[in-house]
Design a protein around this nucleic acid. Structure first.
Ligand SMILES: [Zn+2]
Length: 358
DNA sequence: CCTGCCGGGGG
DNA sequence: CCCCCGGCAGG
């Protein structure tokens, strides 16, 4: 009732009982820097934004320390670290055990799993001076990702990246700090939000199909007919076509013909290509699978046409309506399936991650 | 294989 | 709304 242990099925967790050991979940989840209070004075000596206590790194540290003192199992040692990522790849890190105050509203922290009992707390500061006339709490003006889907995370700021933070060096005495963060946060904000005119694809594809049909008549090379193909494709096209296709393939298999890799755009056709076995057949067989194989003597015009079409259909690498994969690992990878409860809500629902969004 | 996420479905 | 999962794109 109060806190149902999500997870209808216990998945495959052999571990008898883990989870539910952390007093709280403190799912920072979405929300990031967002604007401060509406009437927040232009103070710049404030340490952090109005962050809930459980989000305060210091606070956390304390707790963690206690935890450790209590000598409990290391089921989940949390490694809290504060990372401030400014727009520039400027990043200074200095290990210290004291307060970590930040003057940048872009302060975040990410959680890590040291795997060992060694808790590492590092405070990092960026040499990012504030603007003289800072004051105004701007922020709400830059949240504008061309994402039709209303993502819970309202912010474009670079998220912390838990991407591999190898840190297990015992800093016994005062030794030189040798921490390095592989932080390659390149805020590539490619706002390629084209106009909602991307349906041309379909027609293009169609055209392609037709073209292929016509073009499918390849100059038959005198070759031996080696009938031996077991194709279980979707019988959608006329037999003739199939036959021809097969012929084609044979040709292209037997003789070194020039084939034009007609790469059709990632369009969800009405077909599946799920293969159960591990057969890596080269035959993908689709209606739009065009292989123009000829010795170069048959209608070059069509060739061109096809190419053009393909070109047109092959929109820029950034496919529309499909967000490019982020750079940093998401909850799933960071915590793993076993720790699914630690994922951010979005991740749990297989939605765009809100904690380590990119 | 695996990861990340859209779209769709159930409560 | 909250929650989950099929399926797919992209390594
Ligand atoms: Zn997440």
């Amino acid at each position: 009732m109060s806190k149902k242990a999500r997870r209808p099925i216990d998945y495959d967790s052999n571990s008898e009982h883990e989870e539910e050991f952390y007093y709280e979940e403190d799912d920072d989840d979405d929300e990031l820097v967002k604007t401060s209070s509406p009437t927040s004075p232009p103070t710049l000596s404030h340490r952090d934004m109005a962050r809930p206590p459980h989000e305060d790194p210091e606070y956390q540290r304390q707790l963690v320390g206690n935890f450790k003192q209590a000598r409990d199992v290391n089921y989940r040692d949390i490694n809290y670290r504060d990372i401030i990522t400014s727009n520039q790849p400027h990043l200074q890190l200095q290990g210290s055990t004291t307060s970590c105050l930040s003057s940048s509203p872009l302060a975040h922290h990410s959680y890590n799993w040291p795997s060992n009992a060694a808790i590492t707390v590092s405070a990092s500061t960026t040499s990012h001076q504030a603007s003289p006339g800072n004051g105004s709490t701007t922020s709400a003006t830059l949240s504008k990702h061309a994402r039709p889907s209303s993502r819970p995370s309202h912010s474009t700021a670079p998220y912390p990246s838990p991407t591999y933070v190898h840190h297990h060096h015992h800093n016994y005495s005062s030794s030189s700090v040798g921490s390095a963060i592989s932080n390659s946060s390149s805020s590539s904000n490619s706002s390629n939000s084209n106009s909602p005119v991307i349906h041309g694809n379909n027609s293009a594809n169609n055209m392609l199909q037709q073209l292929s049909q016509q073009n499918v008549t390849v100059t038959a090379h005198h070759n031996n007919n080696h009938s031996h193909n077991h194709s279980s494709n979707t019988g959608q096209l006329p037999q003739q076509q199939q036959q021809q296709q097969q012929q084609q393939q044979q040709q292209h298999h037997l003789s070194g013909v020039t084939i034009t890799p007609n790469y059709h755009p990632p369009q969800q056709q009405q077909q599946q290509q799920q293969q159960h076995g591990r057969n890596h057949q080269q035959i993908s067989a689709t209606a739009s699978n065009t292989l123009v194989a000829n010795s170069g003597q048959q209608a070059p015009l069509q060739h061109v046409a096809v190419q053009q079409v393909v070109s047109a259909a092959k929109h820029s690498p950034s496919s529309p309506s499909r967000r490019t994969r982020g750079e940093n690992k998401k909850c799933r990878k960071v915590y793993g399936m076993e720790r699914r409860d630690q994922w951010c809500t979005q991740c749990r629902w297989k939605k765009a991650c809100s904690r380590f969004g990119d």
